[in-house]
Design a binder for these strands. Sequence first.
DNA 1: ACCCAGGTGGCCC
DNA 2: GGGCCACATGGG
Length: 224
Amino acid sequence: MHRVIGVYRRLLAHYGPQGWWPGESRFEVIVGALLMHQTSWRNVATAIGNLRRAHLLDMRRLAGATIRPIERHVRVAGLHRSKPARLRAFCRHLIDRADGDLDRYFGRPTGEVRRDLLRQSGVGPETADSILLYAGGHPVFVVDAYTVRIARRLGWLRTDRYDDVQRFFVRNLPVDPSMYGEYHALLVAHAKAFCQPKPRCGPCPLRRVCAFGRDTKRISPSGR
DNA sequence: ACCCAGGTGGCCC
DNA sequence: GGGCCACATGGG
């Protein structure tokens, strides 16, 4: 029995279920994950809405579209020189790897799918794991900058390596994809409220979460 | 006029 | 391996 579970319970009691990942389909979750880099969800949601109105929120349409219209709809999410091309390339990959069938794409061992995801441009560990968990239902704990910040400020860890942080949570939690998804969303909700880069902890439900550890600039990509 | 956002890829040493 | 940097739009 570990603090990690206790914190999960307190966050859930305080913030309630977050209902992540917002999206009407698995494909929409994937699109969101690819657009989410270094951007607010609000702008990603706008971009997804733009694609939908243009009937481009569709794997085969996106795969066959020219860059210019995709770019127009996605511009609001920033980084428009890379995101449209990556989005289209990813759709093309799903089509020639699994004939566009997501059940088939995700229907292999977690490690194999993860390695395949990581080979795609624009897909690093967090994006890969978000897609695995929220679109594929694989039992993978997602780590992001907020996760690392909170865990370090709580004094749980010193490392900032993605794999190490992930291992820490997995070791201390039961294997439960729906709980993983909720926990990750709760950490984001909590960080937005209380764990800004400048430490300031008001009536924080975790109490003194800002008092420990030291923030890292960037998550180190791998553990080996 | 800053700073930040649910990262990633590319350099350099 | 570690340490910077660019990427780009929109909101506080």
